[in-house]
């Protein structure tokens, strides 16, 4: 839980690096914090793959809704929040294994990195696809843009 709350600072930093300002910066950082908390809470009882999937789905839904409310692109909130979940630590351990000439561990960690990255991607794809579908339905039946 504490680790999750600390994600706020990581997302805040990334928001500044990608040049977000004011309310949008705060929303992006809070979104990242929610993702971090979801991931860490789920991680106690589940695999990291499932936790990452759920966290990425939650982040994507929140970004989609906030983008509609504040009338700005979805990516504004998505990127800064999604980056903390990227399995950078696993990637580092893979490199460390290769250098220590421990190929079995390297394959193990490398595969875990790929699977974790894929679970984030699938969560994100799922919601982006849903968003597109809802958009086209809205355009078709309400005859209104965005």
């Amino acid at each position: 839980m504490f680790e999750g709350l600390m994600t706020f600072f990581a997302s805040l930093g990334f928001g500044i690096i990608f040049d977000l300002r004011g309310t949008k910066l705060l929303v992006a950082a809070l979104n990242g914090m929610i993702g971090g908390v979801v991931y860490n809470v789920l991680l106690t009882n589940n695999s990291s793959t499932l936790s990452l999937f759920v966290a990425s789905v939650v982040i994507s839904i929140i970004s989609g809704i906030m983008a509609r409310i504040l009338k700005c692109p979805t990516t504004t909130f998505l990127i800064a929040a999604l980056i903390p979940l990227v399995p950078g630590g696993q990637m580092y351990y893979t490199v460390l294994d290769i250098i220590n000439n421990d190929i079995t561990a390297a394959v193990n960690d490398g595969l875990k990195t790929v699977v974790d990255a894929c679970s984030i991607v699938i969560g994100c794809v799922f919601i982006s696809g849903l968003e597109l579908a809802l958009n086209s339905l809205q355009r078709r039946y309400l005859n209104k843009h965005f």
Partner: peptide, 21 residues
């Protein structure tokens, strides 16, 4: 943002990630 602000943001990121890991 100015370069120094970006650097402070980088420091903030690293600070947060250290706890996250």
């Amino acid at each position: 943002y100015s370069t120094w602000m970006l650097c402070l943001a980088g420091a903030l990121c690293a600070f947060g990630f250290a706890f996250f890991y």
